[in-house]
């Protein structure tokens, strides 16, 4: 059974059918790409998957559990984490605290235990610190742990966002244009990072991307979206050579 199984997903904003009859099947451990021209509805699909928008019709099954109708935080608890096209970090918090915020639901203690500094506070905070530093060192961010997130260079902010998403222990990681605004070197490093995340964390990844080099370099499977409709899907090399897809991207 596929980890993520989306069937006939659709949403309308007034008279505009933004996404129509969208279906997607992602096997566990797969690196899946979602591509399409500007305004094709890619980010809308992400917003549907994470409960930001409620779909007008269709089902979203994660490991057999229906996600339609759930709120964003419930979907995150069910195992979907995401990054954003325009980076959304907690800018006034330190790098370490950004990751610790991601650990929020997995290292619980009550507010009162926090205020009165009961033994559990120290125990859990210590475990949190250790886990967060472990994650940060995986992404080579451990030296910047005390820096404010806003002061990180752009490429590291992207990495930190991925780290924070992974801290929530997802089954499925959604990356929204991770290479946006990066130079070729940074993009190359990012490709390695994404592949590394898949292998190291045994993660299933769905990513939206415009950078064809990145897509053809790391995605095993692709779905192409155009005007809210699935244009093609299948193995990356087949899809990228599909005349219909080339037409949608480059025009006739």
């Amino acid at each position: 059974m596929a980890l993520l199984d989306v069937k006939n997903l659709g949403i309308s904003f007034g008279g505009l059918r933004a996404v129509n009859e969208f279906s997607l099947e992602i096997e566990k451990g797969c690196l899946y790409g979602l591509i399409g021209p500007n305004g094709a509805g890619k980010t809308t699909v992400f917003n549907l998957l994470t409960g930001v928008y409620q779909p007008s019709d269709g089902v979203i099954l994660l490991d057999g559990e229906n996600l339609v109708g759930k709120k964003t935080i419930e979907i995150n608890k069910a195992g979907v984490a995401r990054t954003f096209q325009n980076i959304r970090l907690f800018k006034e918090l330190s790098v370490l605290d950004n990751v610790k915020a991601g650990l929020h639901n997995h290292y619980p203690y009550s507010t009162l235990e926090g205020i009165f500094r009961l033994p559990r506070y120290f125990k859990v905070e210590k475990a949190m610190d250790e886990r967060a530093m472990e994650l940060l060192s995986v992404f080579d961010l451990d030296k910047e742990a005390a820096t404010l997130a806003a002061n990180l260079p752009y490429g590291k902010q992207r990495k930190l966002e991925i780290t924070r998403a992974l801290a929530t222990r997802p089954k499925l990681l959604l990356l929204d244009e991770p290479a946006a605004g990066m130079n070729p070197n940074e993009t190359k490093e990012l490709m390695e990072t994404i592949r590394f995340v898949r292998d190291e964390f045994d993660m299933t990844i769905l990513l939206i991307e415009h950078d064809m080099k990145l897509v053809s370099g790391i995605c095993e499977k692709l779905t192409v979206l155009n005007f809210g409709q699935v244009l093609a899907c299948g193995n990356a090399s087949d899809v990228l050579n599909d005349p219909e897809v080339i037409k949608a991207y480059l025009g006739e």
């Binding site: 935080i73 995150n76 984490a81 970090l89 907690f90 929020h104 926090g114 924070r164």
Partner: peptide
């Protein structure tokens, strides 16, 4: 503490806080 971090996360970016499972 954990709760304070959640509160400041909401202050800095509500949408991101929601996406990592913080109860706004």
């Amino acid at each position: 503490s954990r709760s304070g971090r959640a509160i400041m996360a909401i202050r800095d970016n509500r949408i991101a806080a929601e996406s990592i499972g913080i109860n706004i």
